[in-house]
Design a protein around this nucleic acid. Structure first.
Lengths: 148, 148
DNA sequence: TTTAAAACCGAGTAATTTACTCGGCTTTCT
DNA sequence: AGAAAGCCGAGTAAATTACTCGGTTTTAAA
């Protein structure tokens, strides 16, 4: 049940974008540097995020990426699902996909998988980039205090 | 974030065991038949469940497996974790494993992973084999009604 | 006491997935 | 014109998954 690097790096990158956003777009290079990711790989992920409509790209020199919406409107769930697909723990409970299992209606384990899926969706959809920014500020404040 | 077949088959097998348990042990062969699983593969999984202490084995002819505890004491979480390991979405938040990431204390994404992990644990630990048996009975009752 | 039914065990393996890299093309600012 | 960026498709080594197989040991029953 591990997330792949796509989801992990994707969340990191989007957080970085949220934290470092201004009116100028942010380049893959700078995100990759700050977050310690491979540029070429991150490029793939950004393509996915763009196709999902979570970021907008600006081509050409001085180009880069910007969030499509404000940080409090983008959730961790949006990010992970756009890069990894459904959070369903098994294929037969992927949302909006009719299952080809004819026993589905009377399947007990199916109920279990649905509950797991729903609970994961609930957490990831409840965490926005804004929440992460606030956590970040809190942690840094405390860090500064500790280092006195 | 899919479960592997180990976890899926494991839950199925344990449910089967709970449902078909009497004073006689239940053989791998019969579980595999009812659940449509490969005998040889299921054998591996049962070994894992035995090592985790969830089932006890009876060797020799007429042997098989029995639950180590009553169905209301065994959770889906126990089963999945014993076959797949921690439900942590990333390695750095596996329970009882100190992380080698020195930024851990100030890591924002880490907080996200912890929340996901905790929420998954909470659901899977809240579902017992007894719950599944009751779901099964409910579904079958309704099925019988529908088929009138 | 033989036989057969079962669990136990370790090793091997094909297929799939993951986590990338690479090279070239296009766009656009300076 | 040149450089800095994004865009795109293909390729690949390593890891993981989902198994299988062959043999050993144990034990109930005929």
């Amino acid at each position: 049940m591990r997330l792949s690097t796509r989801g992990r790096y994707g969340v990191k990158a989007m957080f970085d974008l949220a934290l470092n956003s201004s009116d100028e777009p942010v380049s893959i290079k700078s995100i990759a540097e700050r977050q310690g990711l491979s540029e070429a790989y991150l490029e793939q992920l950004m393509a996915g995020l763009r196709k999902a409509g979570l970021v907008k790209s600006v081509r050409g020199a001085q180009g880069g990426y910007v969030l499509s919406d404000s940080p409090d409107k983008i959730t961790v769930g949006d990010i992970i699902r756009s890069l990894e697909g459904s959070m369903a723990p098994v294929d037969c409970v992927i949302e909006d996909e009719e299952t080809n299992c004819e026993k589905a209606e009377y399947c007990v384990t199916r109920l279990v998988w649905e509950r797991i899926r729903d609970s994961i969706n609930q957490v990831v959809d409840s965490i926005t980039l804004q929440d992460m920014i606030e956590d970040y500020k809190r942690l840094h404040q405390r860090k500064a205090k500790n280092e006195d």
